[in-house]
């Protein structure tokens, strides 16, 4: 039995051909370099690409890891944990990633918009997990932190109402789109 803190091994966002859109590896012992990483991505992609993971998140055990995944449009979201990990913790992280990206991209979740807003997606990865440890699982809070809501006003983030936060997020987004 393992008494340790739940650990996320990696988070992957691949396109419909299995190519990288954005990835983050937290375990550098299991995947020390780009070769091992792409091999893992390829293996996971071929084993999952034909499954229907468009409604509920799906799950599988590949190469000794537990992988939870969810697809939308031409994007494939994956979260990987060790073979002893609580599956439901992994899926919570997957859902948080998925929802935060949806919020930030205003439900336009497809490869094109993700690439156009890659900075937001990379920041989302940074706000969900830090060095393998789950940092936050509430997608609204994550989206707010990515947009740095509250940094330029006196109202601290925690005291904003949801609608305020959302209005702010929208404004921020519009600004970034008009660059």
């Amino acid at each position: 039995m393992d008494y340790s803190t739940p650990a996320i091994k990696n988070i992957l966002l691949l396109d419909s051909e299995g190519k990288r859109v954005a990835v983050k590896y937290f375990d550098h012992e299991d995947w020390p370099n780009i070769t091992t990483q792409t091999a893992f991505e390829k293996s996971v992609f071929t084993k999952t690409s034909r499954t229907a993971a468009r409604g509920e998140a799906e799950i599988g055990m590949f190469d000794g890891y537990i992988v939870v995944y969810k697809f939308i449009a031409d994007l494939h979201f994956y979260v990987t944990g060790g073979d002893d990990e609580n599956e439901l913790i992994l899926v919570t992280v997957l859902q948080a990633f998925f929802d935060a990206v949806s919020l930030l991209l205003r439900s336009q979740v497809e490869k094109k918009t993700v690439l156009e807003n890659l900075d937001l997606v990379l920041l989302t990865l940074d706000e969900i997990v830090d060095g393998g440890i789950v940092l936050e699982t509430d997608s609204t809070i994550i989206a707010g932190r990515v947009a740095m809501r509250g940094a330029d006003s006196d109202i601290p983030l925690s005291e904003q109402t949801i609608s305020q936060a959302f209005a702010n997020a929208k404004e921020q987004l519009a600004r970034s789109l008009l660059k």
Partner: peptide, 24 residues
């Protein structure tokens, strides 16, 4: 990086959508 409102862009570029990437 040409960032345009994704909605507008989508309609115009539907044909060569698979080719399009800001990092092309």
């Amino acid at each position: 990086m040409a960032l345009v409102n994704p909605r507008d862009k989508k309609d115009e570029d539907r044909d060569d959508e698979t080719e399009y990437s800001p990092f092309f």
